[in-house]
């Protein structure tokens, strides 16, 4: 589904990604860890095609198409969706209207979708105008529900979400990635398992709601230490990211955590 090869990215001339290689297969959820400033958000932004993030080397393929330099809307139409961490406010555009636009030519019912997220009271408000951190998260999820992407990029979906809403957000992320549970229809479920996710998390709360297939640590613009995401999380909780430094210095990054 997604193939990233030797990706180098700069922001305003400063290198932030320095040779990222990553393959995410259909139906797989890939968890991205890494300390602040390591380049996680930059990777997602680059995949989406945000203009500040300039690819200086390497390639990105999605569904077999080279999208390294494709415009954002082409990536979106091809099936990539993103939940932004700090989306802009758009005055005069009601949230409900944007949800409709996200559905493109499919007929979506913003009201019905919003109800599932307890967000229907916000449909008439301008997009992100005065939304709290947690409300922004739900607004982003609502747009993704209408958009139905095949690859979803989540940037810390749980940050700023209170405990009560965490259940709701977690469940929605689950539904987006793994399909809603439908009684009986195994076929339906099988099909929705084609969706894949690339998920950034610091706390790991989101892992309780989804099947986390694989994970890696992004450190200084490079991916390392591929392992079971739960193992990585446990390891970071116990040792911090110091271990990554050690990996770097010994030049044996892969599988280091699993072995230790």
């Amino acid at each position: 589904m997604l193939e990233i090869r030797d990706l180098h990215v700069s922001i305003e001339g400063n290198p932030v990604l320095k040779g990222v290689n990553l393959t995410v297969r259909a139906g797989e959820n890939f968890i991205l860890f890494g300390p602040n400033g390591s380049g996680k958000t930059s990777l997602l932004m680059t995949l989406m095609g945000v203009s500040n993030y300039v690819v200086t080397q390497g390639s990105i393929r999605f569904k077999g198409v080279d999208i390294t330099h494709a415009p954002m809307y082409e990536r979106a139409r091809l099936g990539i969706g993103i939940s932004f961490q700090r989306p802009p406010t758009i005055h005069g555009l009601p949230t409900g209207k944007l949800v409709e636009l996200c559905g493109r030519n499919r007929n979506v019912d913003p009201k019905a979708l919003a109800k599932k997220l307890h967000f229907d009271a916000f449909l008439d408000r301008d997009v992100n105008a005065g939304f709290s951190g947690g409300e922004i998260k739900r607004s982003e999820l609502l747009q993704l529900m209408a958009q139905k992407p095949d690859l979803i990029l989540f940037d810390e979906p749980e940050s700023g979400v209170d405990l009560e809403n965490m259940q709701l957000v977690g469940q929605t992320v689950h539904d987006l990635l793994e399909g809603e549970k439908k009684e009986g229809s195994l076929l339906e479920q099988g099909r929705s398992r084609q969706t894949c996710g690339l998920i950034i998390t610091h706390t790991g709360y989101i892992l309780q709601y989804i099947t986390a297939h694989r994970g890696q640590v992004l450190y200084h613009g490079k991916l390392m230490c591929e392992a079971n995401p739960h193992e990585i999380l446990k390891h970071i909780q116990q040792h911090g990211y110091q271990e990554c430094l050690r990996c770097l210095s010994t030049e044996t990054p892969l599988q280091a955590i699993v072995k230790s």
Binding site: G49, M72, A76, F84, L93, L101
Partner: peptide, 24 residues
């Protein structure tokens, strides 16, 4: 930033711009 936000939802550049203008 606003144009790109809408482009990430599948609107092309013209659609994004006119949506923002309409809101303005």
């Amino acid at each position: 930033e606003e144009i790109e936000y809408l482009m990430a939802r599948g609107l092309d550049e013209d659609e994004a711009a006119s949506t923002i203008v309409r809101g303005f």
